[in-house]
Amino acid sequence: MQTIVSIRNLSKTYAGGFQALKNVSLDIRRGEIIALLGPNGAGKTTLISTICGIVNPSEGQVLVDGKDIIKDFRATRSLIGLVPQELTTEAFESVFATVSFSRGLFGKAPNPAYIEKILRDLSLWDKRDNRIRTLSGGMKRRLLIAKALSHEPSILFLDEPTAGVDVELRKDMWKVVSALRESGVTIILTTHYIEEAEAIADRIGVMTKGELILVEDKAALMHKLGKKQLILDLKHPLETLPAMLSEHDLLLSSDGLHLTYTYDTQGERTGITTLLDDLRREGIGFRDLKTTQSSLEEIFVKLVEESR
């Protein structure tokens, strides 16, 4: 897939000496949704801010659609829309006026019909004449998306788009993001919510302490790092595990009624057949079985812990 944003050896050290980005390199593919995960202070917002022109990089280079973000800032910024983390809006402007302002700021001729379409898509059309301060938090968040889309960008940065948003609204937001991707917009989002990345992203980048420690296709990441577990509900409780079963990675629950077998999906063999044979030989029967896979959250926590 074609690269639309190319980040090479990007570093940022703030005036106080704090190094927010350390030699970050990343290629973002056209039309994908990439989620950047990381704890607070990992450098996610600094990375986005640098690409968008808000923060000056200390070292390295960023190309957007093949153009340098500093030398060709007009061309690159015209392609980018940014939804900031904070609900930073004017208070007294009307919804329609502020979205129109954003379009003009990005060098586009007025187009009331297009603004109407965006506001309708984001369920804000009924509020078009309202002052921004009268909007709810969720509406303000959608308004920020409308402003970011006002100039028809092909790349959209969403910095924690669902921070502080209730579950229902968060799922609405995911629908909006998915619809944008369908229309061909490349989306880069930062999030604390692992389920958000799991639900909508194609690729996951994990950042910590200013470093991008991993970038992987979501499915591949979960496949590569994910552990699977087989849980057996036993017919009769066991007091201890028979010696014959000790070679398997088994865990007996405290009530003796559940056996949990952990295996690696990457292994040549899962060992399930051998385990079931051994259970039969030991005369251990089971009523039911199920498998579970480790969530992205568990993978993320593991990765961040390993990097410490």
Binding site: T89, E90, A91, L105
Partner: peptide
């Protein structure tokens, strides 16, 4: 003060 300067800084304006 309000933080809306982000828009000015990220826009294609000199």
């Amino acid at each position: 003060f309000t933080g809306t300067i982000y828009e000015l800084l990220s826009a294609p304006v000199s």
